[in-house]
Computed example of a mutant assay.
Amino acid sequence: MEITGTAQHDAWQQKALPPVERLRPDLWSIPVPIPHNPLRYVSVHAFALDGGGLGLLDAGWGSDESWAALTAGLAAIGAGVEEVRGVLVTHLHFDHLGLAARVRDASGAWIAMHPADAAAVARLTAAGAQAMVTAEVEFLVGLGAGRDEAVSDVGPPENLRAFTQMAVADRLLEDGEHADFPGWRMRAVHTPGHTPGHLCFAEERSRLFFSGDHVLPRISPNISTSPGGLPDPLRDYLDSLAAVRDLDPAEVLPAHEWRFRGLDARVDALTAHHEQRLAELLGAIRAHPGSTPWDLAAHLTWSRPWEQYERRMRIFAVTETDAHLRLLASRGLVVSSGGPVPAWTLALR
């Protein structure tokens, strides 16, 4: 794999925000910070459109700090937010969709997403923060969490309120459809796994591949189960990786970290990572039969000692463990006890 976003990579090593970059005569990368998050920023891509105006791919985290960075980035390329005609959103997470409503309010731009994620955003908006908290607590209890632990990790409704006030898409993009960016051939590539409606975009004129969170150069995106989410998200994710492996783009432009070449090699590495993780989980089940997803997460290798995991980090770890368990079950390698809280053992072969 070849690093092509050298300025992004250098900034990452220096723990700094990378510069606004002109990638092509009509394409720019604008880093928009994610407050208090190890990913640091999302790369918002701005496109000059035939006939005037701009298109954006993703919008950034919904905060005043991020808004200031986005508008300053647009000013640095000689543009303003009022020139934005449309926003393509790769998926529903707050660092990608959070500022979309503010962009739309300032410019009248349309917002486009895959129907699956657009429907999920509409459900969250209709249900409200308290319903979101209740659903997540019950989901975690169903994975083996004690109720007090689940309530503490999820937190109060006010912590999640912003996530229930995100923009609902004006337009829907199915797999294979082209975005309304005049002068560009932006083909939507549905890549479920990270979210049900995650979209990558293959630009057919320049052979650029905008991979969102589906393929990142350094880390594996979080693949987790969730209330009302995909029944087997890791299987979907691995299938989505295989579907893009041989596209052979000229360059991959992810939403985080840095640009690179060698999509096939990175897909192979991500696939191997998950197979190793599945093998580790099988070993944990062998050593601790009858364990819940909550318990099994504590027996896996993480980036820091398990005792340091709490709140959202622990939720991600447990739900990621659950996603791997579901794939093992679909392969016939493990079975659960059934009932409200599954306890997992190796399948008899």
Rank of each mutant, 00 (worst) to 15 (best):
A106Y: 00
D105F: 06
G60N: 05
L88G: 13
V87C: 10
S66N: 08
P33N: 01
W61G: 11
R24S: 12
R104P: 14
A122M: 06
T90D: 14
L54P: 09
A112G: 13
F94V: 01
G62I: 00
H9L: 04
A72N: 06
A76G: 08
S63N: 05
A106L: 03
S66I: 08
P18W: 07
A11F: 00
V89W: 11
A59Q: 07
G55R: 03
D50G: 12
A68H: 11
R85W: 00
W110S: 06
V103E: 11
G86R: 09
H114W: 03
G60R: 01
V20S: 12
S29G: 14
D26E: 15
G98L: 07
W67D: 06
G62F: 00
Q8K: 05
D26V: 08
H93W: 08
A69C: 03
V81R: 04
A68Y: 03
A122I: 00
A79L: 09
S66Q: 05
E82N: 09
S29N: 12
D10G: 15
R85P: 02
A48V: 03
I77R: 12
L17C: 01
P35L: 11
A16I: 10
D26Q: 12
P18H: 08
G62L: 02
A126C: 12
A79D: 10
L74Q: 07
A118V: 12
R123M: 05
R24Q: 11
G78E: 10
D117Q: 10
P35M: 03
H45A: 15
L57W: 08
R123H: 15
G60K: 02
R40K: 09
H9D: 08
I30H: 03
S63Q: 00
V42W: 03
P33V: 03
